[in-house]
Design a protein around this nucleic acid. Sequence first.
DNA 1: CTCGCATAAGTAAGTGCTTACTTACCGAAG
DNA 2: CTTCGGTAAGTAAGCACTTACTTATGCGAG
Lengths: 207, 207
Amino acid sequence: MSGDERRRVILQAAVELFSQHGFKGATTKEIAKASGVSEAMLFRHFENKDALYEAIIETKGCRESATKFAWDNDEALIKAIAEKDDAAVFYRLGFTILEKQQSNVPFMRLLLYSALEEHDLAERFFHEFVERVYEFIGGYIAKRQKDGAFRKVKPRLAVRALLGMLLHHSLNNILWDKSGVLLKISNDEAAKGFADILLNGLNAKEA
Amino acid sequence: MSGDERRRVILQAAVELFSQHGFKGATTKEIAKASGVSEAMLFRHFENKDALYEAIIETKGCRESATKFAWDNDEALIKAIAEKDDAAVFYRLGFTILEKQQSNVPFMRLLLYSALEEHDLAERFFHEFVERVYEFIGGYIAKRQKDGAFRKVKPRLAVRALLGMLLHHSLNNILWDKSGVLLKISNDEAAKGFADILLNGLNAKEA
DNA sequence: CTCGCATAAGTAAGTGCTTACTTACCGAAG
DNA sequence: CTTCGGTAAGTAAGCACTTACTTATGCGAG
C-alpha cells in the first residue's frame, strides 16, 4: 500500500475511534490496529496524536463542512432563501447539519466531544463551527425580523434553540444506535419537525 | 477529619473532576490530591473508581434531581400546570433544569459526558434522566394537545426540542466560562426565551 | 483518671498494566 | 545502495489499585 493510501486508512480509523471515545479515550494502539499497521507506522505518518487529530479536523469532510457547510452549493437552500420560504430554509439547514453524522465523518459526536474535552484544537473547532452557524442562521433570522416576518426574539437565542435541537437529536440517535432504548427519529422527520416547531411553536393558532 | 466528612470531601472533588474531564479523563490521583488525601485513602473510602462514580450518581443532588427533579415541590410549577399557563410551565421546567448546573453538582456537564462515554453506569444515568423528562413534559404536551391548546406535533419531538435547547445552552455557558468567546445568556433569560420560542415560534402572528 | 488495645484515619512506596512515542532493524523497488 | 513502507521490541511516564506500615481516636476495665 502506498504512503498516501495508508495515510487515508489511518485517518479513517482515527476518525471512527476519536468520535467514539473522544481524544483522550481513543488510543494510538487501537487506531493502529484498526488501520492494520503497527503503532510505529502510525507515528511515521503523523508526528504525534495531536497531529493526527488536527489532520482529521483539517480534512475536507470536517473543517470545511464545519465552516462552509457546503451551503454555498445547496441549491434547495439557496432557492428557499431567495423565496423567503422559511420552513424550507430551516428544514434544509437542519437536514444538512444532521446528515453530516451519516457521512464519512461522524461529525456531531466529534463536535460534542470537542466541546467537552479540554483540548485546544478541539475547542477551537467547536467555536468555529458554532460561530459560523450563529452568523449564518442568525443573519437570516435578523433579516426576516426586519422584513416583519419574524417576531422580535434575540437571533442568537433562536439559533441556540435550533442548534440545540439538532445536537440533542444527534445525541439521542447515537445512543439509540447503541442501546435501542430511546426513540429513533429519522433526520428528515426531525429536521422537518424542528423547523415547524421553531417557526410556528406549539400553540394552536388562535381563531 | 472523620470518615464521613472525608468521604464527602472526596465526593465533592470527584464530582468536580468527573464533570470537568469525564470518567476516563479524571484520574484517581487528581481526585485524591484535590481532596487533600493520598490515593490509598480514596480507595479505602471507595472500593474502586466505578464505586466512586456510582456514589456521585446516587447522591441526593444528582440521581434524585435527575429522576424526581424536585418538581413535586416546585409550587410555581404546580400552580402553572393547574392554571394551564403554558409559558410559565415551560419556563419553570427549563429554569429548574438549568439551575442544576449552578447547584452542588455540575449536572449538565456530567449528563453530557455520560451520554458520550461508553460507561454502563453513565449511560443508564443519562437514559433515566431523559426518559423521565420525556414522560413528564411529553405527558403535559399530550394533555394540552387533547385540550386543543397545542398543535398536533409529536410530543417526543417537542420534548427533544426543548431538552436540546437547554442542553446546548448549558454547553455554551460552560464554554463561555472557560473562554469568554461565546455569548453569555443567563439561565433565566434563556428559560424564558426558549419557552416563548417553543410556544409561539418565530413567525409573526398573522393579522 | 489512665492504661490497654481495638479500630479508624492516614501515608510512602510500591504492583502490574497501559499510554504515547522511539529505536533499530528488515526487505523490496528503483 | 538508497529510499520507502513496514515491523519487533523497546522506553519513560501515567494509570488504577495495593501493600506494609504509622498515627490518631475512642472507650471500657481497673
